[in-house]
Amino acid sequence: MGLPGRGLAGGLATTFRTMTRRSITQQYPDVSPDLPPRTRGVIALLEENCTVCMLCARECPDWCIYIDSHKETLPATTEGGRERTRNVLDRFAIDFSLCMYCGICIEACPFDALFWSPEFEYAELDIRELVHERDRLALWMDTVPPPPPLDPGAEEAKEIAAARKAVAAPAPTGDRHGEGAAR
């Protein structure tokens, strides 16, 4: 404690010091904000990569991804070959009025079809407009930034590590133990 009123003087000093410093307010509509890398603004869909595996829709905690599809049969490419079926996407929509930006769908997608975009200015006057259909989700792809460099000392991306190992020592196929040991 010490002298009486030291606490009061300390408080006064703190506020005065703060006043002489730059304030941290962002002048948002006038000056666009300086967003950190990997900002979660909106989810973009790269339709070409989507196989309609439905993993994202099933993993989404609030069930706000809507996917409709049908099966299409492709004629055999070679004479006497088997016909192939594949899933064709009819509808892909994300309801951003429900989405909580957890990013689970993006993590879950095994085919790199979903991406984070930092765009955040998509407020609407009608809540129903917040359901972004596939065309709108596809448009967001243009705003997806290139992936930021890894943090120094971070583990290498899995596929790159695997590829490098494959180049260094072509292992017999089927042996998948080495991969686990690299962790």
Binding site: T15, F16, R21, S23, T25, Q27
Partner: peptide, 10 residues
């Protein structure tokens, strides 16, 4: 203004 800047606002 003074109060704002003392609270690191504008």
């Amino acid at each position: 203004k003074a109060m704002a800047h003392m609270q690191s606002r504008l």
